[in-house]
Design a protein around this nucleic acid. Structure first.
Lengths: 124, 124
DNA sequence: ACAATCTACAACCAATTGGTTGTAGATTGT
DNA sequence: ACAATCTACAACCAATTGGTTGTAGATTGT
């Protein structure tokens, strides 16, 4: 199912999002490219602290950086944000599975492929 | 916009999800009620450690507990999971706003209420 | 040419976190 | 009645985290 790497990635993504300064930075860079210095101006902390926050977002894949001269321009990666949504959808899917199982119990259904928890794949 | 409390809540939610053991516990309790002891059997760590993880999930609102005799039965709250999805949707909305703004720039549109970033509210 | 700007990173520090063992209280089963 | 079970929480510890200041290298503007 979920490999070690997937879990590492999920850890990094949720951890990156678990800080309000980083979420705010992410909002700004999703709205448009900003240099690290420009971002740093907005927060009551040192440039180095903001640079670290951007680095955490970058390591998680939520932000990409592009060098232009001496500046590092950061952009938010909306696909990475969506991939977090997918992780949540998987959790919701587990919950839906529970409801199906309760139904099966109540209705005494022996089995039903439609209620399968694992994503259907034609070839295995 | 986002109040201090909202940010506290987002911190708690993302932090709770930023640990693979807690995500695994959440999956189990979304699939069905489990006592803390039953959960603890599944992990290579002490009962106390698992009890703490459940407490973190509970404080974030992702899990609720119900006392039955000497047992504490934990359930996952799918609504809380969905509320995290909403937070991500808000980030995606910021990104969509950027695209609209680029369009406006290219097309030289002076203003367009359809592209407003703030959720529309009839009365203000 | 060179001062100013921007970035990355090292070294450091206090607070938080994820784990441990131990204890005590409530409930249960025989 | 009482041993066993379940839970909550305290006290503790090492590792991580979010911040700091300082330094050095690359780029830019005058």
């Amino acid at each position: 199912m979920s490999s070690e790497q997937d879990e590492d990635r999920a850890d990094a993504l949720f951890h990156a999002l678990a800080d309000r300064t980083r979420r705010d930075i992410l909002r700004r860079v999703l709205a448009g490219e900003h240099s690290v210095s420009t971002l740093a101006e907005r927060y009551p902390m040192s440039f180095a602290a903001v640079q670290k926050h951007v680095a955490v977002l970058e390591r998680a894949g939520l932000v990409t950086k592009r060098r232009v001269g001496r500046e590092a321009l950061a952009s938010g990666d909306v696909e990475a944000v969506r991939s977090v949504g997918t992780l949540l959808d998987e959790l919701e899917h587990v919950w839906r599975g529970r409801v199906a199982r309760i139904d099966d119990l109540l209705l005494g259904m022996p089995e039903d492929p439609q209620h399968d928890t694992t994503p259907t794949r034609k070839e295995t």
